[in-house]
């Protein structure tokens, strides 16, 4: 299961598992955001390459109009995935406390 919605202060809150089956819904939501957006990942448990594709596509679109996607509350497992994917070089990542 995956949920994605706006939280306080315009932050986008994502929770659950961002897998191949859930990625189209996440992409449809993120296609509607503009500017610099923080994605709160504190309750994101899992991401696969399909989910990484959603984040990359969104980052490319936002950076094309001087915005960006920031990732906050990233757990250790997700941090590993981002490092292995080289996403630590193209996203601002704030680890989970």
């Amino acid at each position: 299961m995956l949920t994605i919605d706006f939280g306080p202060n315009g932050v986008v809150v994502i929770a659950g598992r961002l897998d191949a089956a859930q990625s189209p819904a996440a992409q449809a939501f993120l296609d509607q955001v503009d500017g610099t957006v923080t994605l709160d990942c504190i309750r994101l448990e899992y991401i696969s390459s399909a989910g990484l594709g959603v984040l990359l596509k969104t980052q490319k679109r936002l950076m094309g109009s001087a915005g960006k996607l920031r990732l906050s509350g990233v757990n250790r497992h997700l941090q590993d995935i981002f490092v292995y994917s080289g996403f630590d070089k193209i996203f601002e990542i704030e680890p989970a406390p």
């Binding site: 594709g53 292995y84 994917s85």
Partner: peptide
Amino acid sequence: DIDRPIEQREPGGLGLHL
């Protein structure tokens, strides 16, 4: 190739790498 700049990266191709 995870060292490419974002402009040259496209979604996909990461599964087996991971």
